[in-house]
Amino acid sequence: MADSKDEETIDVPFNQQQYVAIEKLRDEGKFGQTDEEIVRNIFLEFLKQEGV
């Protein structure tokens, strides 16, 4: 299990058009409610889907 000391916080910029996608995902309620939850969960979904 990763140690919390290995954690890193990154600022990921999204423009207002890309942010529409995040809002739609928030409406689904499946991937979290905060911007951070949605972005992290979708990133993890992507890794899973791509087998990374």
């Binding site: 990763a2 890193e8 999204f14 942010y19 992290r40 990133f43």
Partner: peptide, 25 residues
């Protein structure tokens, strides 16, 4: 349309394993 384009940062925390994969990418 949608001018000007502006960005806002979303602060995301990744654990060590997730960060490792991101760095590999």
């Amino acid at each position: 349309v949608n001018y000007p384009i502006t960005s806002k940062p979303i602060r995301v925390t990744l654990n060590g394993e997730q960060l490792k994969k991101a760095k590999q990418l």
